[in-house]
C-alpha cells in the first residue's frame, strides 16, 4: 500500500469515527480535543489491523498519532522496518 492510499484510508477512518468531515491531513486531533482514551485504543487497533503492523511501546509517542499525516508516516516507517526484516530473513 503506498503512502497516498494509507493517507486516504486513515483519513476516511478518522473523519468518520470522529465525525469531523473537514479534518485536514495535518490537523492535530489531540489539540482539537477529538481523542478520548477509549478512542485512543480504537486508533491503535485500527492501525495494527488495517496495515498489518504491531504498535509497540516505542511507537506510543503522541506525535505518531496526532494527525492523519503523522499516522501515515508511522505506517510507512513501520512497514519499511518490517520489509527490511523480511528481506534479511529471506
Amino acid at each position: 500500500m503506498n503512502d497516498g492510499t494509507v493517507r486516504d484510508t486513515v483519513g476516511a477512518f478518522l473523519r468518520g469515527a470522529l465525525r469531523h468531515n473537514d479534518l485536514a491531513d495535518e490537523d492535530d486531533v489531540f489539540a482539537l480535543g477529538l481523542i478520548s482514551s477509549m478512542f485512543a485504543m480504537e486508533l491503535v487497533e485500527f492501525v495494527e489491523r488495517e496495515f498489518g503492523i504491531a504498535v509497540e511501546s516505542e511507537d506510543l509517542e503522541m506525535e505518531n498519532f496526532q494527525s492523519i499525516a503523522a499516522i501515515t508516516r508511522l505506517v510507512a516507517a513501520k512497514s519499511a522496518v518490517a520489509g527490511a526484516a523480511r528481506g534479511m530473513v529471506s
Binding site: T5, V6, A12, L14, R15, G16, A17, S36, F46, E50
Partner: peptide, 27 residues
Amino acid sequence: RQASSRARVASALGACAGNGREQSASL
C-alpha cells in the same frame, strides 16, 4: 459512550472498505 464510539468506528471502517482496501486490492 463506548457503544456510541464503536458504532462510529464501525461506520468509519465501512468507509475505509470503500476506500483504502479496494484501492490496495488493485495495487
